[in-house]
Nucleic acid binder design. Structure first.
Length: 260
DNA sequence: ATGGTAGCGCTGCTA
């Protein structure tokens, strides 16, 4: 089963490229973030024509998350349920079961500037993500959390440590919040496959950052142990960041062998 | 040099 995640930075602006990418990459499950559309405007029929069932949790102008699947979609939920949401009212999490795997599509808050209210609530949001996993799942379940985490887990995950000094995405507290998810029982599937490579998933639109290789790896596929042992391949599709009207993020793809 | 680009939606915010 091929699972993938892509922050598309507006599904309306990116739909032709998403359609093109689905046809070429042939994922079984695709998690989207920053759809920036309402549930009513979500192009479910377009995806159905390509063979994908889709569920969406959107609000309109900002945020918005979705899951597309051609291996079934059931037990759909969104948000943190009974738990408090530090970004209440923002569409940042949707979950569903696809092909026997619990799939979670997340758009972690950006945090804006270190030590601002938005940053403090970003850390709280990541803490609630762990609490929500602990309340509703087990590390022994086949479960994957895919999305834009807005955190570079390690210094290897930014093009220049100096360039991000004092910025969000690289602070010890943000990295500790990702570490807490891993402590619960998640593995960074892409990093496990490429221990030393500096491969990024996001490049700022400005200054020609993509072509200068000035990127960050902030789009992650975190999987529980039963899935980690099934990973056969992982890749960032940099080609999807090229050409006309790209998103500022590239898709991250992970292949899973059939369960033993 | 606090720059630069893209999306939303129409003025300035968010990333």
């Amino acid at each position: 089963m091929r699972i993938a995640t892509w922050n598309v930075n507006s599904l309306k602006a990116r739909l032709p490229r998403v359609e093109e990418w689905l046809a070429g990459a042939q994922p079984d499950v695709l998690c989207l973030q920053e759809t920036k559309c309402t549930d009513k405007a979500f192009p479910a029929l377009t995806f159905a024509a390509l063979g994908y069932d889709a569920v969406h949790h959107g609000q309109g102008q900002w945020n918005g998350v979705a899951i597309l699947s051609r291996v079934g979609i059931s037990d759909v939920t969104h948000g943190f349920g009974a738990l408090d949401d530090p970004y209440d009212g923002e569409a940042r999490l949707i979950a569903a079961t696809c092909g026997g795997v619990r799939i979670v599509s997340v758009y972690v808050p950006n945090g804006r500037e270190v030590d601002t209210d938005h940053y403090v609530r970003k850390l709280a949001w990541l803490g609630q993500l762990r609490a929500w996993l602990q309340a509703g799942a087990a590390p022994t379940d086949p479960l994957a959390v895919l999305g834009d985490f807005n955190v570079a887990p390690d210094d290897r995950d930014v093009w220049s440590v100096a360039a991000f000094a004092g910025s969000t995405h690289v602070t010890p507290a943000e990295r500790a919040a990702i570490g807490a998810l891993c402590d619960w029982g998640l593995v960074d599937a892409f990093r496990a496959r490429y221990p030393d490579d500096r491969l990024y998933s996001y490049w700022d639109y400005r200054r020609g950052d993509f072509h200068q290789h000035r990127g960050m790896r902030i789009d992650l596929v975190l999987v529980t142990a039963p899935l980690a042992e099934r990973v056969t391949w992982a890749v960032v599709d940099r080609n999807a960041r090229k050409g006309q009207q790209p998103s500022d993020h590239a898709p991250v793809v992970v292949d899973l062998a059939d369960p033993a």
